[in-house]
Design a protein around this nucleic acid. Structure first.
Lengths: 130, 130
DNA sequence: TCTTGACCTTCCCATGATGGGAAGCCCTAT
DNA sequence: ATAGGGCTTCCCATCATGGGAAGGTCAAGA
């Protein structure tokens, strides 16, 4: 099948599939005459893997590692788990940062009348020196 | 003062201060001869405001809005609150997305032995079709 | 058989916020 | 006067993604 159908079936955009090829994640065959990309069942399976990993927030480099581990039938499951754990740690780091911002903002928001008057603890907080 | 000291005092990098100038958030005076940027107390105050807003995750466009509201002594506190609430909503959206990824990953990780054997529920999940 | 329209190709550019680095100017202390 | 540190502008890179232009390919219908 061509890239359009592969995109539809995988849920990735054709743009991104070409990008993933450019960086070596998936390299399909080409039709001899037209140079159209041709995706077979194997490629489609690989695209599905990429899609799933991407939706779970893995970086392109992590996906590269995971794809290699997938292909390596003798890898230790510990190797896969390590990649997943590293990603979880990163997600939790981001989550903590967001939670801290949210908490501060909610405190400020709850102190603000939110009416037509100009005095506002939010702005005042921002304007207060360190 | 010059940009280096302004950077030190505000906690922003000189690079970023120049960038904020380029996009019109803060425009300092220049020394007539040398074209060095010169930051006064007013500028420093503004940089502090930017720093605080940035650390709370506001986008540059939101900072632009907030700076304008700060300068406008007649704004309604509701206007400020609306910006903050919109940002909180965005943070919570991101937080929910991260939490969903984290949950899925943790489930997969807990199902994975993480030893020397090759069978791994994580990879298997990724490889499973939609 | 020819045309039309949908699809494909490559190439360039943009995003947002940030950093790196080069080439060259300015100022101050020795 | 010279050295060194700070400043300037300019260009490039990140990461994953989308937009769009110019042009090639293919299949279906007249």
């Amino acid at each position: 099948m061509n890239i359009g159908e592969a995109a539809r079936l995988s849920g990735l955009s054709a743009k991104m599939i070409r990008y993933y090829e450019e960086i070596g994640l998936i390299v399909p065959d080409r039709t001899p005459g037209s140079q159209y990309r041709v995706y077979g069942t194997h490629d489609l399976h690989r695209l599905g893997f990429i899609r799933r990993a991407r939706d779970l927030g893995f970086s392109v480099e992590q996906m590269r590692t995971l794809l290699a581990l997938w292909q390596d039938r003798d890898r230790a499951s510990a190797d896969v788990k390590a990649v997943a754990l590293a990603h979880i740690a990163e997600l939790e780091r981001k989550q903590a940062a967001i939670a801290a911002m949210t908490k501060t903002l909610k405190d400020l928001v709850s102190a603000c009348h939110g009416d037509a008057r100009p005095d506002c603890p939010i702005i005042e907080d921002f304007a207060a020196g360190p």
